[in-house]
């Protein structure tokens, strides 16, 4: 069938570009996850702290980022990152604006969602644990670092991974700011070679397969951890 063969022939030519696109997707994913979890943990701790001001800031942050669409956040940072950079340093941003602003945007956006997961995880650790830590003479930072967070993260890992899978799917939004991630590369190539239908379906298939495999792995992990 002409429809297929034309596509497969072109696929061989476009493969390097597609791989590059996939690597961009992975870059965004990794930075966003790591950064998101770190900032999210910080936010969770702020939310649970007894200092009111920190509570409000964390609550406001989470509520803000959960009220607005991801697309809007991406567009904000696409504008703001070079703008602030230029304002602060007086130089123009030489790095890939789209990539840097995407990573910043995703990190801060996902942090709001990660923080809710981390907060639930911390709250699920019984108070007896912190009491025991205090009785042994540990201060707040020690009991958090050595006792509470390690246990909490064990519990939360499947949920954090599920959020990462969601992030993987959301990463396609960088299309809006012109970043050549895996999907956009497919689109651009397909549009260029009049094979748009095939490339869109191909991209859909790839995302589908990766998500399914990842979900399966997370499920297996969840089963092992609950035993």
């Amino acid at each position: 069938m002409e429809w297929f063969t034309a596509f497969f022939q072109d696929l061989q030519l476009s493969a390097p570009a597609l791989w590059h696109g996939f690597s961009i997707t992975l870059k965004v994913l990794c930075f966003a996850t790591v950064g998101g979890v770190l900032i999210g943990t910080l936010l969770a701790l702020m939310r649970l702290s007894s200092i009111r001001v920190l509570n409000w800031i964390a609550k406001g942050y989470v509520n803000l980022f959960r009220s607005i669409p991801l697309l809007l956040v991406l567009m904000w940072f696409y504008f703001a990152v070079p703008f602030i950079y230029t304002g602060v340093t007086g130089n123009y941003l030489t790095m890939d604006t789209a990539l840097v602003s995407s990573i910043v945007a995703f990190m801060l956006f996902e942090a709001a969602y990660f923080s809710e997961i981390v907060r639930a995880g911390i709250q699920s650790i019984p108070k007896g644990q912190t009491d025991a830590a205090s009785a042994l003479g540990m201060n707040y930072s020690q009991s958090m670092r050595l006792i509470v967070l390690p246990q909490a993260f064990r519990k939360m890992t499947p949920l954090l991974l599920q959020q990462t899978i969601i992030l993987f799917q959301d990463s396609t939004m960088v299309y809006a700011i012109g970043l050549l991630d895996f999907f956009r590369t497919n689109y651009v190539r397909g549009d260029l070679m009049s094979l748009l239908t095939q490339y869109i379906l191909f991209a859909g298939l790839v995302y589908f397969t990766v998500s399914m495999i990842a979900t399966y792995i997370v499920k297996k992990l969840q089963q092992r951890l609950t035993v």
Partner: peptide, 22 residues
């Protein structure tokens, strides 16, 4: 559920807009 939850929303919209009409 398996199909519609594992394909990103953006790609689904593109499929409905670009692919299905064909």
């Amino acid at each position: 559920v398996t199909i519609f939850r594992n394909i990103p929303l953006l790609i689904q919209l593109f499929i409905w807009f670009y692919v299905v009409p064909d």
